[in-house]
Amino acid sequence: MTNTTTWARVKSPWVLHFNSGACNGCDIEIVALLTPKYDVERFGVKLEPSPRHADVLLVTGCVTQQCAERLKRIYDQMPQPKFVVAIGACACSGGVFDGNYNVVGGVDKVIPVTAYIPGCPPRPEAILDGVVKLLNALNPPKQKKQKQLEPPKETKPVVSEPEVIVPSQEAKPVIEETKTNVKQ
């Protein structure tokens, strides 16, 4: 049963894209992923409109003051199990905008991040590679070795290739905020 569930989760990652203050570069590359040249539907990836439907949250851009709270709320609205992928140098660390007055920093300052995909912007192939690596990390053989890693709060990105950290697969207790409506 667990194997079937894991198989289904690996084969059917529905993603939600949130731009937390990006320059459009990474966002356009994510949309390009859906198009004929890259076609992520091959891997069962679907871009979903509502956080309620998503398994993987793709965040692009440094987190601005206005977006920080929104980002957290969107993360809370997603059902367990959920993963966060920070796409692009800005999402990984704040990038070129780190230290500006309206910028909080990287995505991991606000929500736990599972995988980092650096680049400005990362090529669509790199994003694809990162998402596939993240999902393959869920597979049972690796699961045995898993040391119950909590989603890291302050891990810094590795520069060369997407880093994947597998969070606990156990569903966490639903926090109260999860129950607010998708309103805004």
């Binding site: 203050g21 601005t64 206005q66 929104r70 910028v103």
Partner: peptide, 8 residues
């Protein structure tokens, strides 16, 4: 507006 205001 201002969600993408990064103070460039």
């Amino acid at each position: 507006l201002g969600y993408v205001h990064r103070g460039i």
